[in-house]
């Protein structure tokens, strides 16, 4: 009767009631309120940067600013290092949209980042057109290290746009 273990998975913790403690009151389990998976969110690949936009995306989580759970980010050192081939590969494999959370003028590798990221986006847009992919499925915005709200807003509006327009939008499993 004393071999009670707590529920949260602190599995190594043996719980004992105080001698006068009513046992029946030791455990309560909150009814788990499983949210329904949103079947209506687009798959978005975010290229984020380790020092600038990643902290903003992390802070969005910390502040519990919600955005669609089908947004995934891959972290890289600098947004000007993204190869257009990666973006095209993402569409080919089934991502609805790609978002570049760019360093902007905050980039730790220098001012040229903004221009170079712009160039690679331009180049990718050309490639997308040639492959008949809607260029609006690639978006870029500068996300500073505390721009959590702006990131979340971007994700929500991009998601809405993609749900409306993306031709190969397939419902998530």
């Amino acid at each position: 009767m004393n071999k009670l273990f707590s529920g949260t998975g602190s599995t190594d913790r043996l719980i004992l009631p105080l001698p006068e403690y009513p046992l029946s009151h030791i455990f309560f389990f909150k009814s788990e309120n499983m949210g329904n998976i949103q079947t209506n969110s687009a798959k978005i690949l975010v290229f984020s940067t380790e020092k600038i936009s990643d902290p903003a995306i992390d802070m969005a989580g910390l502040l519990k600013l919600h955005y669609p759970p089908t947004v995934y980010s891959i972290s890289i050192p600098c947004s000007s290092g993204i190869k257009p081939s990666w973006i095209l590969y993402a569409y080919e494999k089934g991502f609805d949209g790609v978002f570049i959370a760019a360093d902007g003028s905050d980039c730790v590798y220098g001012e040229s980042c903004t221009e170079k990221t712009g160039n690679l986006v331009g180049k990718t847009h050309e490639l997308m057109k040639s492959k008949n992919i809607d260029p609006a499925r690639l978006r870029m915005a500068a996300i500073c290290s505390v721009c959590s709200e702006s990131f979340v807003k971007q994700m929500r509006t991009f998601n809405e746009y993609l749900l409306k327009t993306a031709p190969n939008q397939t419902p998530n499993p």
């Binding site: 499983m34 949210g35 802070m59 989580g61």
Partner: peptide, 15 residues
Amino acid sequence: REQASWAHSDNKMGA
């Protein structure tokens, strides 16, 4: 955590 459990605490299956 920051990019799944906290960001999608409104949607456990999604998270």
